[in-house]
Write a protein that binds this DNA or RNA. Structure first.
Lengths: 340, 340
DNA sequence: TCGTACCAATGAAACGATTCAAACTTTGGC
DNA sequence: GCCAAAGTTTGAATCGTTTCATTGGTACGA
């Protein structure tokens, strides 16, 4: 077999017109059972596969949606992607995935590629400030939904998670379990997520007259950064130790946990309660299973697709910004002091 | 602006023929500087973006390569993807990424989608046994390279990593640092990777007359599975403890490490050396930085693209199977007994 | 028997690029 | 000033679908 079969080959083989073959594929109800059978048989025998380029060219629109994330390795995005794919499948669309890796150049490449492919629309978790590029997309009429980033509602729809609420949730949980001398670990605070989570925590702490919140700025958001903050706490000694620690993400929390438990100086949660953020897979299998704040990633992905579908279907551009509230996951690291 | 500009609009706007616009885009050398400038200006003013569907339809082939992996969340695949994207970019192609999530249905959907898109070729890390489906692809003339899976060289090219060599490397390292009573942790051994790594380890142990290798089968490849094996070891007591442990992956090793160090009964590497496999990000930030076997994921991704390019360019199907040897990464967990 | 619906099937036109033979223009040698 | 060669530009044909006005056939009621 030399060339892949075309719809014309199928038509000849089944002794029908090309339009009929097309109808079998797109509007089966318009075709009688008898000819439908013949055509399907011919398709099977010739191994015909629809040429999407031709279909798209004629139909004027594709069946694909572009999705550009900052890092496919990040479980947060992995989960969003999975949900988006499933939701898109329900709409009969497929997702083309691009990984910008926080690199503006790669992101630009993907935007160009997806434009050339004439995707139905674009879901993007943008690198830094790309207002100009996104404005261009808007002018070109490519419906776009921002993921994990709030947008000017006059211009774009967006889905995001309320980090302030997440911070509040974490701190409130520590307070509810009787902790009063809290510490926040995270940094740099120039990162919006970190700042918002801190702000939420502060809001919760203000509700309790006798509660305090100390901010321990970390150098980055890694296990090692967490461990060095933890080591510092160990050195400060027992009387200066907070009784509840909220870390801006789980990696930091795992690092802090390593420092505090490695030396066997302190016990979690008896001496100090610990809560992280993101609920990564490792949280549950830490030495002391880690309480955390879980982001509704499936809902994010699903809703992003739905917002995009809205934009695609309706002509007049009414944008919506959907904000989700994260969820508290309680594990042993913030259990009520069990040692008694 | 209603409709996106076509090449014809550009031609009108610049007062040239459509063929000239096409030449500007594809063969700039054939066009004089003067008209090139005029055309580029028109392209800019109209915001023209090439319609890839039309180009592909006429040109007969696309500029995209399909890549289907088992799990984008797995750092192994993330790294392969990244390398493949970069290598493809050098060839002027873009990678469309599909995540089968170990699900044959999703995999089939992506294969269909990519066929309809008429990708240049397919890189796939297949779910289970898909010989039939892949044979179909071969008949249809879609060049295919298997990733992380050896293939019948008469049919497909493939890239893979030599797990036997990796197992040998790990065990040999333990032996070289003076350990003699080794243990292998992993399971189920029905997984090819696990079996091969074990086999390699056994080969190394046979080289030393006084060395032994005990197999501790785990239930899965998770931190928790590792921890339960570790707890079992702790209970066995010091005299029955191996002095070197090789885990089939890093998660298991981290679990074993938790058990052994949590109780402060044993010290790593003084009482027992520990080495994992995969060199995940967490390995370096474990309580005791974990030695591991690193797979050459970048080389895998790059080579897969190159093999595919070979198949696309040459007509006669000569397939190659490229096998890479993994690399030993020494960290503290197998350091020579420093406590002395 | 005729007229009217209705249902199926037809096939030419269109989508927007690339390709390529042909037409046109410029250059340089004599 | 003429001619050939080299360099540019042209525009019709083509890729494989979808779309849709039109045709052919059948059934039913008058």
């Amino acid at each position: 077999m030399n060339r892949t079969a075309s719809i014309k080959d199928v038509a000849n083989h089944a002794s029908v017109a090309v339009g009929t073959v097309s109808n079998v594929l797109n509007y089966p109800d318009r075709v009688s059972q008898r000819t439908k059978d013949r055509v399907l048989k011919a398709i099977d025998e010739l191994g015909f596969v629809r040429n999407d380029a031709a279909r798209q060219l004629r139909a004027g629109h594709s069946r694909t949606i572009g999705l550009i994330v900052l890092d496919v390795g990040n479980p947060f995005f992995t989960s969003v992607v999975r949900a988006a794919e499933d939701a898109a499948a329900l709409h009969g669309s497929a997702v083309l995935l691009g990984d910008s890796g926080h690199d503006a150049g790669r992101e630009a490449n993907y935007i160009d590629l997806f434009q050339e492919q004439r995707v139905q629309g674009l879901l993007i978790s943008p690198v830094g400030d790309v207002t100009e590029r996104l404005d261009l997309l808007r002018e070109r009429g490519v419906p776009t939904v921002l993921v994990d980033r709030l947008a000017d509602e006059a211009k774009f729809s967006s889905v995001a998670v309320d980090d302030d609420a997440g911070g509040y949730l974490a701190a409130r949980h520590l307070l509810d379990t009787g902790r009063r001398r809290l510490a926040f670990v995270g940094g740099p605070t120039s990162i919006r997520q970190v700042a918002d989570r801190l702000q939420g925590a502060q809001r919760a702490v203000k509700e309790e007259a006798d509660a305090t919140l100390e901010v321990l700025e970390s150098e980055g958001q890694t296990v090692l950064a967490g461990r060095s903050v933890g080591n510092m706490l160990v050195e400060r000694g027992r009387e200066n130790l907070p009784d509840g620690i909220f870390c801006a993400n789980d990696l930091l929390a795992l690092g802090v946990m390593q420092s505090l438990t490695m030396t066997h100086t302190y016990r979690i949660p008896d001496d100090v309660a610990l809560i992280g953020y993101d609920d990564i897979d490792f949280a549950v299998s830490a030495v002391v299973p880690l309480s955390s704040i879980r982001q509704p990633t499936e809902a994010l992905g699903r809703t992003a697709i739905e917002l995009l579908a809205e934009e695609v279907e309706s002509q007049n551009p009414t944008h919506r910004a959907v904000v989700f509230t994260p969820e508290l996951v309680v594990r042993q690291s913030t259990g009520t002091s069990s040692a008694g």
